[in-house]
Amino acid sequence: MRQINSCYGYTPKNTGNYYGYNYSAPKSDILEDINGFLIQIELPGVKKEEIKLSVEKNILSIAAERKKSAETDTLKYKHSEIAYGTISRSFVLGEIVDSEKIAAEYSDGILKVSIPKKEQSKPKEIIIN
């Protein structure tokens, strides 16, 4: 249910206590063109190594851990707006995409996941004889 919620209907918040644990859905943009889909996910302050991207059946999941910036005995928070902890979001993939060819890159705090469509689901032009 969580996957479905985070994909449709459920408005992602920056932070919140969701299903009993500190849950945070990152803001995402989803684009489509004739070749495939592109998902752009905001993951500021997260190291590349701390992002886990996986596909299981038809569900694409992003999980990351945002660690709190170093607070020590002397360095104290005066003001806090940023949410830390577990970040996760799932997307349901349709039949038309080729889940074998999913590629991802991460730069400037944005994870870009490109999901190509299967060759047979791309629009084809039919030549009229």
Binding site: E71, L75, K78, S80
Partner: peptide, 18 residues
Amino acid sequence: TDVLEDKDNYTLYLDLPG
């Protein structure tokens, strides 16, 4: 933004993805 303070510095963290 998060604002932190210690005896020598103020440290600001701003989320600016993209």
